[in-house]
Every structure is written in C-alpha cells, then in structure tokens.
Design a protein around this nucleic acid. Structure first.
Lengths: 269, 269
DNA sequence: TTGCTCCTCACGTCACGTGAGGTGGC
DNA sequence: TTGCTCCTCACGTCACGTGAGGTGGC
C-alpha cells in the first residue's frame, strides 16, 4: 500500500485530485487511518485510477465516470455511452466551428472596409472609372442604413470586394420615404437573391472627405455643391456616400472620428 | 426607458442575465430607482447588449467582453483579439477531435474483439485454415500480456482483423522468462515497425473453451491434453490461447465471465 | 385581497487549485 | 527544533439558473 504522495506519483494524479475523487466516492483509498486520516492506496486503486483517466481523456465528467464504472460490468457495456459521447463532442465541435465562422466573416468584413489613406477635407475633381457593384435599393429612413449594410454584406459574402457605400436618388433630404441604395463593390458579376448586380457608370466627379458625425454632413454637402456650381457643372443623381469609417457593427466608434466620402457626378461628365 | 422585463424582451436576454451583467458592471442600466432598486434601460443599453451578444456568439467570456468593450475604440481594434480567439477555438477543436479519436479507436477495438457465439466447454477437433497475423514475440512474465495486447492493437490499428490471441512456445508453465507471442489477425500483409507479419499454418487442431478465471486454466489444459493423448495425437508447439472475453482495457470484468479458447495443433496434422 | 413585476440574498454547477492553519513521526 | 508529509476547512472559478422571501403599485 502507498501513501497518497507515493500513489500520486505512480498514478500521475495530483494529491488534490485524489482527495477530490475520494470526496466524490469515485476512487476510495483501500485504507484510511482512523487516527491520522491518512489515505493508503493499493494496486486495485491504480487499476481504477487508470480507468478514470482513460474515461476522462474521452471527455467524460467525473459524475459520468462514476455511473459508468458502477453500471458497466465489462468494456463492452461502455459501447453505447461511448457512441453517445462521440456524437455529443461532434455537436460541440459544430458549435465551435460556427463561432469561428462568425469571427472569420467579421474579420473579412473588417478587412474589406479598411480605411484607405486619404488626404484631409479637400474637394477634388477626378475621373472615376466604372465599377461593378451589388446593390440593395430601399425606400425608408436613413436610420436603416446600418442594418442594410449588414444585410448586404451577409448576402454578398465572398463576393464583396470593398467597403460599403450608399447611393441617394432623391434630390433633397428626406426624413421618411427616402429612396436610396446600399452597395458594395463586387468581385465579379454574380446573381444573388435580393441583390442587384450591375455596372455603375464612371465619369467626371467631385469628391469631398467629410470628417465627423453624420449630423454635420449638411455643411460638407453645401461646400461641395457650391464648388460644383462655381465649376459650372450641374450634378447628376444619385449622390454617392462612402462610409470610410462609420459606427462599426460591434463597437460604436466615436462619431468625431467618422470619415465619409461624398461624391457627385457632373452631368454629361 | 424600459423596465428590466420589457428590456429583456427587446434585447433577448433573461432578467437574470441582465442582473448578472449589471453586477459585473458589463451592462449598467441607464437609471436605477434609488427607492425601489428598479432598473431602467434605454436605447444605449440595447446597443451595448447587442455588442455583448455578438461577442458572446464568437466565444468570448463576459470578462473578455468587458475588457474588449472598454479598450476598443472601434470595430477595427477588435481584429487582434478576434484572430487570437479563432486560434484558441482551433486548439479546443483539436482537443475534442483527439477525444473522439480515442473513443473511436476503442470502439473499433471493442468491435474487433466481440465475442463470437460459442458452445459450452466441449472439446472439438477441427481443421483450422491458415491465418495471416501480426505478432509481437516476447520473453517475460504472463502478467505483461494485457499491456502487450494493448500495444499490438495500437500498432496494428486499422490492420487488425479480429480479437487478440497468444502463442506459447514453452513446453511448460513458467513464472518468469516465458516465451510467448501476442498476435492479432491481419487484414492484409503489411510491414509494421515492431510487429512480425506472417502466415500461421493451419491443420488438425483440438480446441476447448475455458470459462472463468485464468487461475483455473490448468484444469482445462489437463482435459485437453488428455483428450489429445486418447486420440493418439501429440501436440505441436506453440499452443494458441484466444481471449474471447478477458479483463477488458477500461473495466476489469468479472473473472468468472472470462472465456478463453485453448487450441493445440496435432503433430503432422 | 390577489396578481404581477420587481428586488436582494444565497446556494448550486465542475474539477479541482490555492491558500490557511494544524498535526505526527523522522 | 526544523523539515516533510499528511490532514481538514474554506474560498474561487464561470455564467448564470433556481429558489426563498419580501415589496410596491394596479
């Protein structure tokens, strides 16, 4: 017979674990000194300890192990419980994989919508090329844009090739019933249920980077339109608003740090 | 502002969970009535609740979520933590798969060593066919057989095609330094490090099923040898002992239920 | 008064690890 | 006496669930 410390070495179990198993009645020492309370273990204990370890390495809890060891008369009786455990682990793995999928999709989204380096709040005139996009047109409130962006990204999945933007088809600001379209650049022409895949025409455009909260967008638009008028051009709808850095999906960033690119196409550009 | 019950509905979180998040400082109500202690939640709480849920579905603990929400200024700041979490989940999945593998291997072993239906303790004379086996020869004590069987099965893996048996090359019983070989039937001729793959010759054999503990094997052998002598045959080494039902790997079955097939080949059979 | 919503303890879960504080024999 | 091995509490972990017992306004 061995003291708990000695047995701990041969069984590869900590003293704390052995005491715990004793408390649980899972592995009772062969002898307990009544005076000192010292536990003593024999070869039978070692055999049982091995069985416990083997079942633990198969993912069973101590309570499960206790009932298994109590009810099974030999190895063959374990079959059903083992098969069930494999299935149970399988569903756990599926949950883990689902978590990974959620994270990976979000990481993809972060990568796509990474903010490119931009100069300050200068008004620029440029020739923009045409672009393949996936769009979702909607009549409603601007409040819904965040939700719609999420939806478009989810539907587009791997086909999304950049950050989201929005096209405004109204000539004026509308609280309700605004007509707009949430878009993402597309990698290739694909057919996706609920999304419209098409080419956005390019042309002569005026752009401005707006820094800060959406509530102050008006001022920036005013500047842009004024510039347009001075240049003798008139705008062609829709207006394009690209969310370089917006409120985020999980964490609402500081509105002061939002960056939005406003773009209007010059008519007959 | 909403009471905890109302907020619980819109946020899809139980009241208990909301109170817990409050205790942890993770989601503090926007207003707490000092007299009644009633909690009241506003739209800001909803946004934070969504963030918490999103991160929970990605596998983060409440403590992790608290630090993430405290330290990240926007979505992009989550990137590193998310990547780490994917890796962490990956190692967890690997552990789960290892558990499944252990269980499956054991289930395979159970299936292979399933006890075929046998009549009682009759002595039979039969022609046995030759058999392809994987063997591990060893000099030592019979005590080691259990361990060696495990080793042979582990090495043979998928190539094992049936239950284990043992060949005894000594003409007598030996406590120490016995010469024996632990074998399993093989599916096909393969080369496995440490195992000898070869064909066991068939021939005229006498077999007897021994029921019960190994300690009483002697009596059964005596019967078998006597029968052999009466039949005018002499035995050819090695003797073959097949463990139809033995002590098991995890659970030591009742020795009274062990079943062992003893087989001796008749010389010049 | 009954019913409903809310509140605050306090305990349980799982498999031990981490002390604290104490003992008996070499 | 010191050191070593052993002992028994008791608390912490994680994210709540499950009561118990009580309150204030409709």
């Amino acid at each position: 017979v061995l003291s708990i410390g000695e047995f701990s070495h041969v069984a590869h179990l900590t003293i704390k674990a052995l005491r715990h198993y004793h408390d649980q009645g899972l592995l009772v020492p062969e002898l307990v000194d009544e005076e000192t309370g010292y536990r003593y273990y024999g070869p039978g204990s070692l055999e049982r300890a091995r069985a416990i370890q083997a079942l633990k390495e198969m993912g069973f809890s101590l309570a499960e192990i206790a009932t298994l060891l109590a009810e099974a008369a030999d190895d063959a009786d374990l079959g059903a419980a083992l098969a069930r455990k494999v299935a149970q682990i399988e569903t756990e793995i599926k949950e883990q994989k689902l978590m990974q999928k959620r994270i990976r999709e979000f990481l993809d989204f972060l990568k796509e919508s990474e903010e490119p380096a931009y100069a300050g709040e200068i008004i620029a005139e440029e020739q923009v090329p045409e672009m393949l996009v996936l769009g979702l047109r909607h009549q409603g409130s601007y409040q819904e844009i965040g939700r719609l962006i999420g939806m478009v990204f989810r539907k587009a999945g791997r086909h999304a090739a950049g950050g989201p933007f929005c096209l405004y088809y109204d000539g004026e600001y509308k609280e309700d019933g605004a007509d707009f379209e949430v878009c993402v650049p597309a990698r290739a022409r694909v057919g996706i249920e609920g999304l419209d895949c098409r080419t956005l025409a390019g042309g002569r455009a005026f752009t401005l980077i707006h820094n800060g909260s959406y509530e102050t967008l008006g001022t920036s638009y005013a500047k842009l339109f004024e510039h347009l008028r001075k240049a003798g051009a008139s705008l062609e709808l829709p207006i394009r608003e690209t969310y370089l850095k917006g409120p985020g999906i999980i964490i609402r960033g500081d509105p002061a740090r939002y960056r939005t690119r406003l773009m209007v196409m010059a008519k007959g550009g």
